[in-house]
Design a protein around this nucleic acid. Structure first.
Lengths: 229, 229
DNA sequence: AGGCTAATGACAGTCACTGACAGTTGACAA
DNA sequence: TTGTCAACTGTCAGTGACTGTCATTAGCCT
């Protein structure tokens, strides 16, 4: 809390580093979305950012880390939001609310680094690149583990004795992944579009697990709309 | 169905290929479990199997593919089991039953290629190797997509219009992954141990999603309840 | 037996990543 | 202001996963 608040004016050295990291990040994401992840070599990125390849690896442990740097930022915002939800709330509701409310702050935070639109477009690259998708999923489960801990805390449970925190979070994560996939396959790669899709799907989780399906069908027009809600 | 039943006696060439593939597979898994995945180079594997590195890559597209070759086989058995479940069954029940009943045939099928115990031990390598875990998760979601299609078929639903098939399968997959993790962290890497753990957890899915937690404790079944530790 | 072709090995090259070493350049005290 | 120190950086060499190419070997079939 010290270094963040009492910000001693960052020296020239620090600013330079910041600029380099930023240039690398922007170069990487631009090249990834333009010509694809696999088609972009680290040398390309370094060259575009006007540094040596070795310097790239001093800022990012791997090509992959650069790719997910912004996502990591976004995720940390979400986790914070979950932490600040009132304790009374049911777990799944808390997650849902945290999602809705953190969406804005995430948008702002991303813009600090790169154009939001670039970040959004990059999601499609993730979905269509096996190596990136794999990394994305691994990161997602790591995140779920962290969130499960938060949930377990909220409810005063011991995660190792009671599987329920992990299960709910896993369900939540599963819905997120399904919506991500569907969303990225569509045209409008908007932040709000993703949000609406996600909340709509979340509403269907419980009913989807219980009742038998053939009796109550979803909306007649085929879209997702209102069954019970 | 033709080539499988009316097996024309496989020529020498074919048998040789089979032996090579088998040697590579066994060498790979043994080395992976003995000295770790990252610590094992493809050259090591090829040398142990007494072929050139280039030949390894003619049998397996990547080091990773060799690692998951047996898993792929096991998964296909499970999918078949799901396909043959009676249509009346509720989706989650069908998945659960398919799991229980395919477990045996999977064991047999694996033994055709490598010692079952080796396969089981390899799961711990997966969980403890980031690169393998990532690949495992990606493969898991691909599998989920396939199963979701089967489920949607069973229920006569259109997967693109109705999200419920994907959601249930995702829930199922989430439970599997959670149990895999817990199981692999334990001592007894038995097939039956994994099966019991999985079914026990599956039983808790619905209750975990609904009720409020603090009032009702988890299952009276001895295993998971503990709570205190 | 001899030709066809699948299977293999040997070799060179690309790309992600790492360690080692030397040169530059901010930071900071004298 | 200057000199020293430590942080950054570039260059170079090396490893390991993978790919393309080409020549050789060895089942297969007539």
């Amino acid at each position: 809390m010290k270094s963040a608040d009492t910000a001693p004016p960052p020296g020239l050295r620090e600013r330079k580093k910041q600029r380099t990291r930023d240039a690398l990040l922007r170069s990487a994401l631009e090249l990834f979305t333009e010509q694809g992840y696999e088609q972009t070599t680290v040398d390309d990125i370094a060259e575009t950012a006007e540094v040596s390849q070795r310097t790239f690896f001093r800022y990012f442990a791997s090509k992959e880390e650069a790719a997910f740097f912004v996502s990591r930022l976004a995720e940390s915002h979400f986790v914070e939001a979950v932490r600040h939800r009132p304790r009374g709330e049911a777990p799944l509701d808390a997650l849902r609310q945290a999602l809705v409310e953190s969406w804005e702050t995430i948008g702002e935070a991303v813009e600090q680094l790169i154009p939001l639109e670039l970040h959004m477009r990059f999601y499609r690259v993730i979905e269509s690149t096996p190596a990136l998708l794999a990394a994305h999923l691994r990161r997602a489960t790591e995140l779920e583990e962290e969130i499960a801990r938060v949930v377990a805390d909220r409810e005063g449970l011991d995660m190792d004795a009671d599987p329920r925190p992990r299960v709910v979070v896993a369900v939540f994560g599963a819905v997120m992944r399904v919506t991500e996939r569907i969303w990225s396959a569509r045209d409008d790669a908007t932040l709000t579009a993703l949000r609406d899709l996600t909340t709509a799907y979340l509403d269907q989780v419980e009913p989807a697990l219980t009742g038998n399906w053939r009796s109550d069908t979803p909306g007649p027009d085929g879209r997702i709309e209102a069954r019970t809600t």
